[in-house]
């Protein structure tokens, strides 16, 4: 069953179409990869889905409910949460307090929120950092903190915007394992990623965007063997 349906979504900034007529479905329990060259409109699409921008045209339907125009906090309460490409730690709060802010979306008790937060900190394996200030963490741990904080809101679908961007291979591998762990627990995920090897490994299906339009959609094997995708990434071959 489709948990998230993107139907003909377009987003215009003035005369520029950052997304035009994008449609696809995300099914429950799967990992949907979203790839495309720089400026293809991946993050804009995330913003349209999670309520930061209202789509200019089209519909976003989550769990059978139309989201257009709903604020990000309402979207989160419905069970859809995103992380940020440029990480946004609450710098002057400790790691556990950061994750507690997420957990407080579901409870008013600080005690319960702390327990929920500790659970997610264990999931991303950052127990040794519990009382560190988030602002002092290295980039790899900031990325994991984003994921833990998002998970603490108890989402039904998790949208990850380039969680591996700027990480070294060992850190990326850790994130890949984390994403697969989260999938094991039955959570649906949609992942924007530049690292082709990583996205091939984790995705069940991949949507390719170029210049704001959907180029193709399919299994990882179908997508990499598609000549259009190759030319979008590497340019047209010389004739």
């Amino acid at each position: 069953m489709a948990i998230l349906e993107i139907k003909n979504v377009s987003k215009f900034f003035g005369g520029l179409a950052a997304n035009s007529d994008v449609s696809f479905d995300v099914h429950e329990g799967m990992i949907m990869g979203l790839i495309g060259p720089n400026g293809a409109g991946k993050t804009t699409l995330f913003n349209c889905i999670t309520g930061y921008y209202p789509p200019s045209k089209g519909e976003v339907i989550f769990n059978g409910r139309k989201l257009n125009g709903l604020d990000p906090d309402k979207v989160c309460m419905l069970g859809m949460v995103r992380t940020w490409q440029k990480v946004r730690p609450l710098a002057k709060l400790s790691v556990v307090d950061n994750v507690m802010v997420g957990a407080l979306a579901r409870t008013s008790s600080l005690k319960v929120a702390r327990e929920m937060a500790m659970e997610q900190i264990k999931v991303v394996r950052m127990e040794h950092r519990t009382n560190f200030l988030a602002g002092g963490l290295p980039i790899g741990e900031r990325k994991k903190l984003e994921v833990a904080r998002a998970l603490a809101t108890q989402p039904k679908i998790l949208l990850l915007d380039e969680v591996m961007g700027g990480l070294n291979p060992a850190e990326s591998e850790e994130i890949i394992q984390l994403i697969l762990d989260i999938k094991q627990r039955g959570l649906t995920q949609m992942v924007i990623e530049h690292d082709m090897k990583a996205i091939m490994r984790i995705s069940d299906r991949i949507v390719v965007l170029t210049s704001g339009e959907k180029l193709t959609e399919g299994s990882p094997q179908e997508v990499v063997s598609n000549p259009d995708v190759i030319s979008a990434y590497l340019g047209e071959p010389h004739a």
Partner: peptide
């Protein structure tokens, strides 16, 4: 404090 530190992040975490 979440709003103070990062309003957009706070918004995405379900804070009105």
């Amino acid at each position: 404090q979440a709003i103070r530190e990062d309003q957009d992040a706070a918004h995405s975490l379900g804070i009105n």
